[in-house]
């Protein structure tokens, strides 16, 4: 089923925002095909009328009260930032 080519690897890498050198695309395509070829044995399993697992725990989502209990900690939020200025995170300019 899967036959990932160089262009597909480049496309996935772009989606995942990971720079991959051109000469590494081909070998990576091979590795991914190898793994995907192996996982494709799942197609043997009959899953007609089977609901996909939505949660491994048999519990309901708990709700929080609508109270402000957090925030007011800009210093903590920014503490590990590679670049922060005037209370903002600073990143290379986004060209719109």
């Amino acid at each position: 089923m899967s036959n990932i080519d160089k262009a597909t690897v480049a496309k996935i890498a772009r989606l995942a925002r990971i720079k991959i050198e051109d000469q590494k695309l081909e070998p990576l395509a091979g590795e991914l095909n190898n793994i995907l070829g192996w996982v494709e044995q799942l197609s043997e399993v009959n899953t007609d009328n089977i609901e996909p697992m939505s949660s491994v725990v048999d519990a309901k989502l708990r709700w929080r009260e609508d109270v402000v209990s957090d925030g007011d900690k800009a210093d903590s939020v920014l503490k590990n930032a590679p670049n922060a200025e005037y209370g903002f995170f600073a990143v290379p300019k986004v060209i719109e």
Binding site: R17, I18, K19, V77, N80, A81, P82, N83, F89, V91, P92, K93, V94, I95
Partner: peptide, 20 residues
């Protein structure tokens, strides 16, 4: 690379280049 940890940004690179 925005809020913590490693940031590798090419000189004059755009945001996407920093990510990648």
């Amino acid at each position: 690379g925005v809020r913590y940890g490693l940031r590798e940004a090419p000189e004059n690179g755009a945001l996407d280049e920093m990510y990648e």
